[in-house]
């Protein structure tokens, strides 16, 4: 998802009896659906896993600004320009909320940002694909934000208080994102033949990467069991992916476009849509840095971070001078 393949302990989940008393008390609180707060005791592995998960999630929001931001200057109407700018701005806000949530675990934003631009931290595979036409902006809103919402809604109930609260805020704001994407596609689909072809082409390119967003199939998700026990992952990758596919098929029908999967068909028995084989080689290759836009995305973030340093330092330097001056002022009784 926005956080894909987050490493946790890599060990089988311990039973309550195998835990020391502190850890056991912690796990029992989670089992009782109590929230864990920053100053509460937590096992170091829980803390480290959460730092990885939340910072990856934040990184995805930040890098996620880029493919859509690519079209702000070319949006075809003033209203579309405003909507897109507001939306991409929201992504920055979401990154900010999430970085702040991660900071409560004892890592600084500076460190997380540095790791991202050094290529040492992950972000979602989906943002390494290019937005080639205006219809891509609609497709990203419909499919990518749609997939994100399916993942994020349950995270509002995750066990870590600051993460859960950030997700509540994000979900509230995110609700307009998917709708604006779908509404834009509706407009294009009722437009000229070229516009409709543009939509079909965009959906053809974004469909598979979108369903890959949920991460590898459950039997390959080695870290899921522990994350589920900690309630920082509430549903399995395959469950969420199936939910997403089921939701998209009728929506695509309504638009009058097809999804690029010949094996996609309703299964009466399971009550789900069956779908074709996912190309996991592509997924892993993109994660390893070989997607179509990995270099551009990281390059853009690195440039913003490095070119912006003087700005951040300049403002800090001004405040340091003010503090100095205040210290030197004679105290008046």
């Amino acid at each position: 998802m926005y956080a894909q393949m987050v490493k946790s302990t890599g060990q089988p989940v311990k039973t309550l009896d195998e835990m020391d008393p502190l850890e056991r008390a912690f796990q029992e609180r989670i089992n009782a659906n109590e929230m864990i707060e920053p100053k509460d005791f937590m096992p170091d592995s829980y803390r480290q896993t959460l730092i990885r998960q939340i910072s990856q999630h934040a990184n995805s929001e930040i890098v996620g600004q880029l493919p859509e931001g690519n079209w702000i200057t070319r949006a075809p109407t003033l209203e579309r320009k405003a909507i897109l700018l507001a939306k991409v701005q929201d992504e920055a806000g979401h990154g900010l909320y999430l970085y702040c949530a991660a900071e409560t675990l004892g890592i600084s934003r500076e460190e997380m940002s540095q790791k991202l631009v050094d290529g040492k931290a992950r972000y979602s595979s989906i943002f390494n694909y290019p937005t080639l036409t205006w219809a891509d902006i609609g497709a990203v809103g419909w499919l990518v934000d749609g997939a994100a919402i399916i993942n994020q809604v349950p995270l509002q109930r995750c066990s870590y208080g600051p993460y859960s609260r950030a997700m509540v805020r994000i979900c509230k704001e995110e609700s307009f994102h998917q709708r604006q994407g779908y509404a834009m596609l509706q407009t294009l689909c009722t437009g000229t033949d070229e516009q409709k072809a543009m939509v079909q082409d965009a959906v053809n390119r974004w469909w598979w990467p979108s369903i890959m967003m949920f991460g590898p199939p459950d039997q390959e998700s080695v870290h899921s069991a522990q994350s589920e026990a900690w309630k920082i992952k509430l549903y399995s990758n395959d469950e969420l992916r199936q939910k997403f596919v089921n939701q998209c098929v009728p929506q695509a029908d309504h638009l009058g476009i097809s999804l690029p999967d010949p094996d996609l068909k309703w299964n009466e028995e399971t009550g789900n849509y069956d779908f074709g084989e996912i190309n996991w080689d592509e997924f892993y290759s993109v994660l390893q840095g070989n997607g179509p836009c990995n270099n551009e995305r990281l390059g853009a973030r690195r440039k913003a971070w490095e070119d912006g340093r003087w700005f951040r330092d300049g403002l800090a330097a001004h405040q340091a001078k003010q503090d100095d001056a205040a210290r030197k002022m004679p105290k008046v009784a």
Partner: peptide
């Protein structure tokens, strides 16, 4: 064109 490229997140949001 600065959205997503500003020197820090708070500034990115404010300029937008």
């Amino acid at each position: 064109k600065w959205c997503g490229h500003a020197p820090d997140l708070e500034e990115d949001i404010a300029l937008a």
